[in-house]
């Protein structure tokens, strides 16, 4: 059974239609890359799937692991195993990363019928996940994202992903603003978390990240729809030729 099935999804923000009939099926174990020019609807897709209340779904269905995703509150989606790595992670002064993750992990474990961690177990679990993304101890102890560099914020997203162990992770332009070392760390974290049971949707502007996280499928999103799908070679072709040839082909058709 597929993990995520999106049928004819239409969504708008501030009276403007962005997604105009989006279809996608993701199976466990797969990595899908979604590429496309600016304004094509990539980040809207991520926000809608995570349940951002600023976006309005006007049509379509989304089935997530046998459940109606669009009926769920954002926190239910997270507890059911959907994770969004934010393009712009929010700074939350006064809330420590540790306390934040303690609350989040407790909610998710409760929902999944798992015993809560005791303090010692939690610290050991956190230490293991921190090492995965090479997040230093001092960052983990600080307020969530406050005063973090761009790269540190993105690593913190991947750290949170590792802590919450989602079935489906959506990485929204996680590569933007990363230098090559940070990119490698983030990609290696994702690769270590890949398994036959989980899946990833990687939203990106550039092919660069896909050198490190090799996708099973690449889709081109343009004007609110997927206009072309292929394998990793499609990403290379896009890198080489840009998006204009797709736009031209569509105009001719």
């Amino acid at each position: 059974m597929s993990l995520l099935t999106i049928k004819n999804l239409k969504a708008r923000v501030e009276e403007k239609d962005i997604l105009k009939g989006f279809n996608l099926t993701v199976n466990p174990g797969e990595v899908h890359a979604i590429m496309g020019p600016n304004g094509s609807g990539k980040s809207t897709l991520a926000s809608v799937l995570a349940g951002n209340p600023n976006y309005e779904v006007t049509d379509g269905e989304v089935d997530f692991d046998g459940k109606d995703l669009l009926e769920m509150a954002p926190e239910e989606r997270a507890r059911e195993g959907l994770f969004l790595a934010f393009q712009y992670p929010i700074e939350i002064p006064g809330v420590s990363n540790v306390n934040f993750m303690k609350s989040a992990v407790a909610e998710v474990r409760k929902h999944r019928g798992l015993e809560p961690f005791d303090a010692k177990e939690f610290l050991a679990f956190m230490k293991e996940k921190k090492e995965l993304v090479e997040l230093s101890g001092s960052l983990a102890g600080r307020a969530v994202n406050e005063g973090f560099s761009g790269g540190e914020k993105k690593r913190n997203e991947i750290f949170q992903m590792a802590m919450l162990n989602p079935k489906l992770a959506i990485l929204d332009e996680t590569d933007s603003g990363l230098d090559i070392d940070a990119l490698r760390i983030v990609a290696s974290g994702v690769n270590k978390l890949r398994s036959k049971d989980n899946a990833f949707i990687i939203i990106t502007h550039y092919q660069r990240l896909l050198d490190y996280i090799v996708p099973d499928f690449v889709h081109v999103l343009y004007n609110g729809k997927i206009v072309r799908s292929g394998t990793k070679e499609l990403a290379l072709e896009l890198e080489e030729k840009g998006y204009d040839w797709i736009k031209e082909e569509l105009a001719e058709a």
Binding site: A50, G51, E75, A78, L84, F86, V95, A143
Partner: peptide
Amino acid sequence: YLRARGLDEFGATALLLTA
């Protein structure tokens, strides 16, 4: 952001206000 990590609306609000 906090809800997207599994905290319910009240829990998220309470965490922010406590901070």
